[in-house]
Design a protein around this nucleic acid. Structure first.
Lengths: 225, 225
DNA sequence: TGCCGAGTTTAGACGGGTCTAACCCTAAAG
DNA sequence: CTTTAGGGTTAGACCCGTCTAAACTCGGCA
């Protein structure tokens, strides 16, 4: 049996791997989980003993297949909970993260199945992030680009908003930046700031690079052929 | 901030106090939580430091007002969750206890409020146990009697089934023993076994004293005046 | 009154998860 | 090829919640 904390480490490593697809370094995990590096090192020792991570000293870790399965289970719990909370308990998409983060470790397989069923086996959560399927097969990254990677004048459809900060998410919602909306890229400033107009809002919104890079688009809008 | 484990101890003491309304002894808590007595002693030290229990060495503990408030909060979480799971996620009343026991420590005030709202501020859980109100005022025990305390021939209405064992609960449900049903007491055997017929079942059911004592009746049916 | 047994507490150990301080490895810059 | 800065690991400490073994207290009984 794994502790909540171990599950958190595996989830963190999984998510960092999605972003960088490289070996994950001690300091990255420490940053992600708000813990010191020696703490991470000692936890990695334990995870290695259990064959949940592959380790190379001084060179970071990757998840083993088993570790990845555990991480997927947790991510599935998290995203199903987020979906359920918004769908059935009237939560706003900006609020669900913290609640799901606490509950994800404590629901049974039975609960997971019932929630998935109540939602009709959804494929994405309210942020547009894919929910791992019940068989926990590693999803193939269908990945698109962030809105920061387009030219001014392009019109794109938002697929996913991968930020976790509730304040940022509220702000985005207020300005019409949510999964499913169309966004016209108005300007990309040299320092990375993206200005765009949502189909759901009157005024354009400007987003610093750190925020814009979390707003993902499934497929680039084709330029005129 | 209190740990999950501390919350469990406070809840256990609260529930034991409801049953015995006396000082609660170390060994009772140990039994309830399935840990050893020394473990209980050391935890009681900590709870006393935090002024959550009143303690007299070698003589057991009682909850302080503050300790009771914490316990009521947990019990409220537990019973609201039980109600929600049966009402909205299609759980059977026999299955909800274990799930609620894990989740009760991890839901936010916000979640609690939303669940209570979705249920319409219910006053009892699926077992008929009273749900503490949101203000966490100690409920006055409106208590009745267990079915073991009646004469053969009496007809009573089940108010609460205070068992926690899923197998026992399933068995009772199969034989029509649930909150709200009428029960005709057919026989009280000298060794405490109660035989009764439910308005919801054809055949009578016999319950050993240990089970019968958990089946509560709100008010005795008045004998003919 | 004095002893005895049941139950409680103390003492000491351990694993989990965290920290700080000190040491060491790696890789990049000269 | 050597130095060095940055980051990773080791060492050692602490608190939590648990245990076993040993000492103690209480209350009933001879």
């Amino acid at each position: 049996m794994l502790s909540d904390v171990m599950e958190d480490y595996l989830k963190a490593i999984y998510q960092l791997q999605r972003e960088t697809d490289d070996r994950i370094k001690t300091s990255e995990i420490a940053e992600e989980l708000d813990v010191t590096s020696p703490t991470v090192t000692s936890m990695l020792d334990k995870l290695e003993d259990r064959e949940l991570v592959d380790r190379e000293k001084y060179r970071g870790v990757t998840l083993t297949d088993e570790g990845e399965t555990v991480a997927l289970e947790i991510v599935r719990h998290h995203r199903l909970l987020e979906a359920y909370l918004t769908e059935h308990l009237d939560y706003d998409w900006s609020e669900v993260h913290a609640e799901a983060d606490r509950l994800e470790h404590h629901i049974s397989e039975d609960f997971e199945a019932r929630v998935a069923d109540a939602l009709g086996e959804p494929e994405v959560d309210p942020h547009g992030s894919p929910i791992p399927s019940a068989d926990l097969e590693p999803p193939t990254r269908p990945d698109g680009k962030s809105i920061a990677e387009f030219e001014a004048g392009t019109v794109v459809t938002v697929a996913e908003v991968a930020d976790r900060d509730p304040d940022v998410l509220s702000y985005l919602a207020e300005h019409g930046v949510e999964p499913g909306v169309e966004l016209e890229i108005i300007e990309i400033a040299p320092f990375g700031m993206v200005t765009a107009r949502s189909s759901e809002a009157d005024d354009p919104v400007s987003l610093p690079e750190s925020v814009a890079s979390h707003v993902w688009v499934a497929a680039p809008a084709e330029p005129e052929p």
